[in-house]
Nucleic acid binder design. Sequence first.
DNA 1: GTGAAAGCGCTAACAG
DNA 2: CTGTTAGCGCTTTCAC
Lengths: 336, 336
Amino acid sequence: MVPPARPTLEAVAQRAGVSRATVSRVVNGSPRVAEEIQRRVRRAVEELGYVPNQAARSLVTQRTGSIALVFSEEANRVFSDDQVFPGIIRGVSQELEAADRQLVLMMAHSPAGHERIQRYATGGHVDGVLIASMHGVEPLPATLQRRGIPVVCGGRSLDRANRSPYVDVDHAGGVGAAVRRLLDTGRRRIATIAGPQDMVAGIDRLAAYRAALRDSDRRSIVAVGDFTRDSGVVAMRQLLADDPDLDAVFVASDLMAHGALRTLRDAGRRVPDDVAVIGFDDIELARFTEPPLTTVRQPVLDIGRRMAGQVLRIIDGQTVEPALVLDTELVVRQSG
Amino acid sequence: MVPPARPTLEAVAQRAGVSRATVSRVVNGSPRVAEEIQRRVRRAVEELGYVPNQAARSLVTQRTGSIALVFSEEANRVFSDDQVFPGIIRGVSQELEAADRQLVLMMAHSPAGHERIQRYATGGHVDGVLIASMHGVEPLPATLQRRGIPVVCGGRSLDRANRSPYVDVDHAGGVGAAVRRLLDTGRRRIATIAGPQDMVAGIDRLAAYRAALRDSDRRSIVAVGDFTRDSGVVAMRQLLADDPDLDAVFVASDLMAHGALRTLRDAGRRVPDDVAVIGFDDIELARFTEPPLTTVRQPVLDIGRRMAGQVLRIIDGQTVEPALVLDTELVVRQSG
DNA sequence: GTGAAAGCGCTAACAG
DNA sequence: CTGTTAGCGCTTTCAC
């Protein structure tokens, strides 16, 4: 069956007995069109099932109505059971929906992926780009911005050349509260499982842990993971080997904390009696671990909302804060 | 700062001292261009940082190079820690990447969302659409197909009017194996926590459970959830109230099974000694529950791959199987 | 208030 | 092998 040729403006105009310009005005809601004609046009649109061709439209308007959210990450990380990404996506989604913009989600794990995203954005598929979960020095934000494409980053960028605004959370505040609690409850050997050291979240949380211990007489005990559950399992084993007497561990993400819990159980340590565990993120899972996880909550939904808000503002030619830092909060449950 | 006006074909042509057509040929990799000229053009492209305007291109080619994957679902369901969606996304991703197509992800939970997706697709933003996680009678597939847009569904559609091809898994086979195992290990009162009854996965798995019990002398004991963890908690409580003596439960998703495990523990039941539990999906979490979950594995990656493969084939004008049903497999761990 | 006409940036015949 | 030409479907001045 032949795909039914989609009706064009022309077709609608003919049917309604008006010019293309008039149809265009009605479709785009211009106020200066006579009631009577509006009705005629709308009816024709209805009958023909007319839908504007976006390519043609954005060729002249230079606008697409969609915004890309790109995760510089493998799909299985973005969609691991780490609720952080989803939260951001939902926040962006909400904000964009309210602004009647379409969200376009993309992932770029490989250099080739980055290349394609860049072509996609530079090719004019979207009006703006949100970039999250960056690793190391990501050239993408700076590149896009140089091309005149509005960009907002999720998390401070490691690329000094990147001058695009970003939205981040107060890692230092959250980690500080966590470590302070461990200190206050009398823990003496406080270790940490850090996140990947090519990501701001990993770097900043480790730095904050170190800073918090510096003020006490405790020494730091560090293992590095990559925010996955399996890496938490492995890191916890290392920690136990390094210092069998440790009695607390701050874990830079709940997912890694879940892995650590498993290792501790396997090693016969009771949580929190023998070892206190505090995570970071407050994902849904944290309420279902054994025991439920004390953790640092970050407002992921807000991160998304704010990011979307910022691009929208840039697109509208308004100025924006170069950095937005959102609060975190310690949520105490049974594990520490 | 003024956004640096993006160079056009014209600009490149001028710089290289050739016509627009020639530049177009080089950019699109047409073979019939002299080496020498190719070099000149490429250099000009490089120097100017030229990137083709997609709107202009697809206006004439009627192609966009991107494929939409839409989840008829709220974002927090798609990105819950249910690894099923991610698996599909990764599969689609892989296949599309290989075909040099761009994946565009979309979510549509509300009628308004559906409307927007429809406009987006009908407006010519994408060459084809994959639809997954459908609830009830989704009109979207049929509507798009009527518009001549290639569509492939993930899971059989409940809409009789929908004639688009689909990819699904063998629910009956998987559930059958699970219930049979429960029977073979001597369980006498085998309950089930079913998935939502407006989704094929929910419906088919419940039907398969019933069919499997029909051949034995056991009666069916049913509670219905919605694939979320919390609903698993609640459903398990109902089941326990209905029949305190039940000694096995087949749960239609691992996430619900996780919730059920929590309820069983709270109720003082030992798993699998008192109650055997078998889930469905085999998400990563299944290896980390207490005890690890026996479950039915479905090849989510393949679902995605096949879906993508199918649209690509339709777009190329080839014929496709109306239905592809993939195998499932029982994975035995400690819980049942 | 409405129509005519120009043109967004590109590809695809068709000549040469 | 390369250039010329004609649109793709739409928005937007500019007249009327």
